[in-house]
Lab assay of single mutants.
Amino acid sequence: NQASVVANQLIPINTALTLVMMRSEVVTPVGIPADDIPRLVSMQVNRAVPLGTTLMPDMVKGYP
C-alpha cells in the first residue's frame, strides 16, 4: 500500500506547507503520494485542512 500525505496539524487556508505540517500514512482513500512531500513544501493549501486529513490534489494550489 502506498503512503499518502496527511496533515500533521490544522493547516489554515492559504498557508504555505512546511515539512512539520505533513506526515506520511497509509490511508483510504489514497491522497497525494508521500513521495511528493518535498515538492509540496512552500505550496499553499486552498482550504483549511484539519489535523489528520489526507491531502488531495485539489487542496493544494499548483499541484501537480
Score class of each variant (00 low, 15 high):
1 N>G: 15
1 N>W: 08
2 Q>P: 15
4 S>C: 04
4 S>M: 02
5 V>N: 01
6 V>R: 03
7 A>E: 00
8 N>S: 14
8 N>M: 07
8 N>W: 04
9 Q>E: 11
9 Q>V: 08
10 L>A: 12
10 L>T: 13
10 L>R: 08
11 I>T: 01
11 I>V: 14
12 P>K: 06
12 P>M: 06
14 N>L: 08
15 T>D: 03
16 A>G: 12
16 A>S: 12
16 A>W: 12
17 L>C: 03
17 L>S: 00
17 L>N: 02
17 L>V: 03
18 T>V: 09
19 L>M: 13
21 M>L: 06
21 M>S: 04
21 M>Q: 04
21 M>T: 03
21 M>C: 03
23 R>E: 04
23 R>H: 06
23 R>N: 12
24 S>V: 12
24 S>F: 04
25 E>Q: 08
25 E>N: 06
25 E>L: 07
26 V>S: 12
26 V>I: 15
26 V>H: 08
27 V>N: 03
28 T>K: 04
28 T>H: 08
29 P>A: 04
29 P>H: 06
29 P>D: 08
30 V>H: 13
30 V>E: 15
30 V>C: 15
30 V>Y: 14
31 G>Y: 02
34 A>C: 06
35 D>W: 07
35 D>C: 13
35 D>I: 09
35 D>V: 13
36 D>T: 08
36 D>V: 10
36 D>N: 09
37 I>K: 07
37 I>G: 04
37 I>R: 10
38 P>N: 12
38 P>G: 12
39 R>V: 11
40 L>N: 00
40 L>P: 00
40 L>D: 01
40 L>A: 00
42 S>I: 03
42 S>F: 07
45 V>C: 05
46 N>T: 15
46 N>M: 15
47 R>C: 07
49 V>R: 02
49 V>H: 01
50 P>R: 07
50 P>T: 10
51 L>I: 14
51 L>M: 12
51 L>T: 14
52 G>Q: 03
52 G>T: 02
53 T>Y: 11
54 T>E: 02
54 T>I: 11
54 T>A: 08
54 T>S: 04
55 L>S: 00
55 L>I: 10
56 M>E: 05
56 M>I: 10
56 M>F: 10
57 P>R: 07
58 D>G: 11
61 K>L: 14
61 K>D: 10
61 K>G: 05
62 G>I: 05
62 G>R: 09
63 Y>K: 04
63 Y>F: 10
